[in-house]
Design a binder for these strands. Structure first.
Lengths: 369, 369
DNA sequence: CTGTTAGCGCCTTCAG
DNA sequence: CTGAAGGCGCTAACAG
C-alpha cells in the first residue's frame, strides 16, 4: 500500500520507466494503446509524481512561499486568512502549493526567508507588510528570486505589486468626516517603518491641511494593528479634555478596538464619536454600528497576486505588473455629524452600504418594475 | 550569485563533496581544522542544504501539511490564523515548514489530500473540522501517513487528537442561561456532518432536559459557521412570535452574527436577548457587549498539535496522544436575566471577565492591602 | 514507438 | 581522516 512510483507502474504494465514517464506527461511518441494501459494503471495505483524527484530534475518546486507577518504572539488579523484563501484557491487551480511560515518567535524574519529560498523550497514568494528599505526585497532581488508584493516598496521601482491607493482612501474618509462637520479628527496609525503607514498618514494629513485644519500631534496615536492596541490608543485619545469627535484608524481591527474604547467610555459610536477603518474585513460589516471603511477585495487580490507570481515564475509576460487600485470607501453608520449639531446625527442607516467606488444601478431599476 | 551547493563548498575548500557533507552534519570523523574551514565557507556562501536532494535520500520532507477548510469562498474564521500561527511557530522552532492548501474551489477535498500525500510533499498532516466517518482519516490510516487531529474522529479510536470537551462547554453555558431564568433558549448550530456539532448539540440538549425544559425544534437553526449565517439564523429565530430570550451559538463568529440580527431587530444584547459563543476569538472579547464564550487557547493548541505530530513522525513516544481539555467558560455582559425579571438585568459588567476555569485569587488579596 | 543511460543534490556505505 | 561510488525518483537526450 505504499505510494506508487514510476517503477511500480513500469513493473505492472511491463513497459520501461521512461515510457511510463512519457505516457504520463502526454508525449506524442507513445502508442495510444500503451498510453491507455499506463494511464489505467496510474489511476488504479493512485499514482502521483514524487515531487522531490521532479524538482531535482526540473528545478521547479511548484510551490510558492508566504510568511505570515507576526507582531507578537496573538496575531490574528482575519485579513490574512482571506488573503491566504485567495492565494490558495488560485494556486490549487494552477496546480501549485503554498509553503507557509512564521517568523517564529524571536528569530529574525529575514533568516526565515534565507532558509526557505536557500534550501530551494519555493519558486517564488508573496510579500506583505513591507517596510522602508525592506531587507527581504533586497535579498530577493540579489538572489533573483521571483516575488510579488501586496503593497508597495521603496527600494525596488520595478517590483511587481498590487496595492490599493490607500492615501486616497484615507483621504476620502477623512474628507467625509470634515464634510460632516468634524474638526478634531484623531488618527490611530501603524508603526512608522511600515510602508503603508506613510501613505495612510499622508492621506489624513492632506485632507486636514487642504481644509484648513491644523495637524494636532496629540491627536495621532501609533498602534500595532491589533484590536487591543486600537482600544488602548483610543482610550488615550478620548481621555483628553478636548477629545476628538472622530477617529480615523488605518485598519479595521484597530477601528474595532476603538469601538470598545468609545463604548467603554460611555459614548456612542457614530454619534458622540465617529470611527472609520480600513480593509473591509467581514467583522467591519457586522459590527455595531457597521464600520465605515475602505473595502479591500483581499480574496480577489490574493488570486491576482498569485497569477502575477505564476507568470513571472514561468517567464510569461505580465501585462500589468504594478497595479494600484482605487479605494472603495463604504460609508456606514459608524460616522455621523459631530455632537452639538442640530440635524439628526445618523446620516447613514445601519446596514445600508453607500458604496462610492461601485455604481449600483440595478436596485433603482428594480424599484421601477 | 546562484545558491551555494555542496559542490561549490567542495570546490572552494578543496575537499570532496562527501567530506563537506560529513563536516556539515557534524560527523566526528572529520579533522577539526577541516570542519572549521568548511563551516566557514558555508557561512560565507550562505549555504542551505537543498531540500529536494535531502528528501530524495532520506525520505523526509521536514514539512507538515495543513489544509484550510473552506465553506464557500469568503471563509475567514480568525480562529485558523491563530491556529496556524501556533503550528507555525512551533514548527519553525523544530525546523519544519508548513504546506498549506485549500480545497480549491469546487475540487473535492479528499483529492487535495491524495495529491499532497501521494506526491510525497509532507511527512504528516494536521486535520481539522472532522466529519462523521471522515474519508480523510480513512485515507491517512490506509497510507500510514502520520497525522494529528484538532477535534475528534469517530472512525479511528486510536487517532491522536487534542480537543476541548465542547459538550461540557456548551452545557455549562446553557446551564448558566437557565440559572439566569431563561427558558426559551435557541441554538445556532453547525452542519450535522461535522463531528463537533454532535458534542455541542448534546451539551445543549442535556442542559435543557436535565432542567426539565423540553427541546423545541423550532428554536434550533443550522448555520455554516460564518458570521453572515449566524446573522441569518438569528433573524429567523427572532421573527417568531414567542421569540427566544437567549441564543447559544456553537462558535463565536455566528454569535457575533447573531449580535447584528438582535441589534438590527431593535433589541439589546444581554438584556432583551442573551447570546453565547464558542472559541474565544479576540473579537469576542472586544465585541459590544463582550461575548460570553468558551476560551479556546488555540495558539497553544496549535503548538501542541505540532509537537505531537513531530513525535509521531520521528517515532518518538507520545506520552498523551489523546488530550481532552476541560472547557473554560468566560461569562461576559452578553448574557443577563431574561426581560421581565425584576432584578437589574446586567449581571456581568462590561469588559470584566469572570473566568470559571481559572482561579483568580490575586485580585482579592490586592483589595485587602 | 520503446528502452538505455545520465544526472539533478544529497547522504552513506565502503576502501583506502 | 578522506575520497569514490551508488542510488533515492524523475525527465530528456540518444539509440535502436
Amino acid at each position: 500500500m505504499a505510494t506508487a512510483r514510476l517503477k511500480d507502474l513500469a513493473r505492472k504494465t511491463g513497459f520501461s520507466i521512461s515510457t511510463v514517464s512519457r505516457a504520463l506527461l502526454g508525449y506524442r511518441d507513445v502508442n495510444p494503446k500503451t498510453r491507455e494501459r499506463i494511464l489505467e494503471a496510474a489511476r488504479e495505483l493512485n499514482y502521483y509524481p514524487f515531487q522531490a524527484g521532479k524538482q531535482l530534475r526540473s528545478g521547479k518546486t511548484h510551490t510558492v512561499g508566504f510568511l505570515i507577518p507576526t507582531y507578537g504572539k496573538r496575531f490574528s488579523d482575519p485579513f490574512f486568512i482571506e488573503l491566504l484563501s485567495g492565494i490558495g484557491d488560485m494556486a490549487s487551480t494552477l496546480d501549485y502549493d503554498i509553503l507557509v511560515g512564521t517568523s517564529g518567535g524571536g528569530g529574525k524574519e529575514i533568516e526565515a526567508y534565507r532558509r526557505i529560498v536557500g534550501s530551494g523550497r519555493v519558486d517564488g514568494l508573496i510579500i506583505t507588510r513591507t517596510k522602508i528599505n525592506d531587507e527581504r526585497i533586497t535579498y530577493l532581488l540579489e538572489t533573483k528570486t521571483p516575488f510579488v508584493v501586496l503593497g508597495r516598496v521603496n527600494n525596488a521601482p520595478n517590483a511587481p505589486f498590487i496595492d490599493i491607493d490607500s492615501k486616497a482612501g484615507i483621504k476620502q474618509l477623512t474628507e467625509k468626516l470634515i464634510e460632516l462637520g468634524h474638526r478634531r479628527i484623531a488618527l490611530i496609525t501603524s508603526p512608522n517603518e511600515l510602508i503603508f503607514t506613510r501613505y495612510r498618514n499622508e492621506g489624513y494629513r492632506e485632507a486636514l491641511l487642504e481644509n484648513g485644519i491644523e495637524i494636532d500631534e496629540t491627536l495621532i496615536a501609533i498602534g500595532n494593528l491589533t484590536q487591543e492596541s486600537g482600544r488602548q490608543c483610543a482610550l488615550e485619545l478620548l481621555k483628553q479634555k478636548n477629545r476628538p469627535t472622530a477617529i480615523v484608524a488605518v485598519n479595521d481591527l484597530m477601528a474595532l478596538g476603538a469601538y470598545s474604547a468609545v463604548q467603554q467610555s460611555g459614548l456612542e459610536i457614530g454619534k458622540d464619536v465617529s470611527v472609520t477603518g480600513y480593509d473591509g474585513i467581514s467583522m467591519a460589516e457586522n459590527a455595531h454600528p457597521p464600520l465605515t471603511t475602505i473595502e479591500v477585495p483581499i480574496y480577489e487580490i490574493g488570486k491576482r497576486l498569485f497569477e502575477i507570481l505564476f507568470k513571472i515564475i514561468n517567464h510569461q509576460k505580465v501585462e500589468h505588473p504594478q497595479i494600484l487600485l482605487p479605494p472603495k470607501p463604504v460609508f456606514r453608520a459608524s460616522i455621523g455629524k459631530p455632537p452639538g449639531t442640530n440635524n439628526p446625527s445618523h446620516t447613514f442607516k445601519t446596514g445600508n452600504d453607500l458604496s462610492v467606488g461601485e455604481k449600483k444601478i440595478k436596485p433603482k431599476l428594480r424599484r421601477i418594475l
